[in-house]
């Protein structure tokens, strides 16, 4: 065992234990740690927004007499402040509208291509998929599974006749899929805890090398 000589490692270890103390019960150490986190992470956010966005993209060019029209853009951005002035708070909608409109427009066709067209293409069974029998069979199962799953989520028609067994098969696929997600979620959550113990046992206490 070789304890870390780095004071920041000690601070981090104490804060880690303060947060873990919540497992026993809610307590002042946890609450203090929680509030500290909110404060410092926002201070960090301010730092980089200033140094890496506002300075190189606004202050520097305008300061050098270039792109003076950016002052007008900054004025539009400053309308976010009106959120806290009740009489003119509606003006905050303008920068939000620019962002929302442009973002929605930009994502519209690109999302269709990435999330629908390419996915449909991958679902269609082609001759090339039968390069070996396994990939061909798996492709057929995927096609059937997609049809059944979509049918299960299709609520516009009553589930009777052929729709009934097809949508039930959809449930089977969905449950296997959710099971896979749950299994992996267990892995994810445990990993997060392992990460903290690696820090406490390794970086702090020196028990892992």
């Amino acid at each position: 065992m070789s304890l870390s000589p780095d004071p920041w490692v000690w601070i981090a270890a104490i804060l880690t234990l303060a947060v873990f103390s919540f497992l026993y019960r809610e307590n002042p150490f946890y609450r203090a740690a929680e509030h500290l986190f909110v404060g410092v992470s926002n201070g960090y956010f301010i730092t980089f927004t200033w140094h890496r966005i506002l300075v190189p993209s606004l202050i520097d060019p305008v300061g050098h007499g270039q792109k003076l029209w950016l002052i007008a853009v900054a004025f539009v951005g400053a309308l976010y402040f009106t959120r806290f002035i009740p009489k003119i708070s509606w003006l905050v909608r303008i920068p939000i509208a620019i962002f929302l409109g442009y973002g929605s427009g930009m994502s519209l066709l690109r999302s269709i291509e990435a999330g629908i067209i390419e996915q449909v293409k991958a679902t269609v069974v082609t001759r090339a998929m039968f390069a070996n029998w396994q990939t061909g069979l798996w492709a057929i199962i995927i096609l059937i599974g997609v049809i059944c799953t979509v049918t299960y989520f299709f609520f516009s028609a009553e589930r009777k006749g052929v729709l009934k067994p097809v949508s039930y098969a959809g449930i089977v696929f969905v449950m296997v899929g959710f099971g896979a997600s749950f299994g992996y979620t267990v892995m994810a959550r445990i990993s997060l805890f392992i990460g903290r113990l690696q820090f406490l046992l390794g970086d702090w206490l020196g028990l892992i090398r």
Partner: peptide, 8 residues
């Protein structure tokens, strides 16, 4: 990706 998102 995190294991949570991997299956998706």
């Amino acid at each position: 990706t995190t294991a949570v998102s991997a299956a998706d």
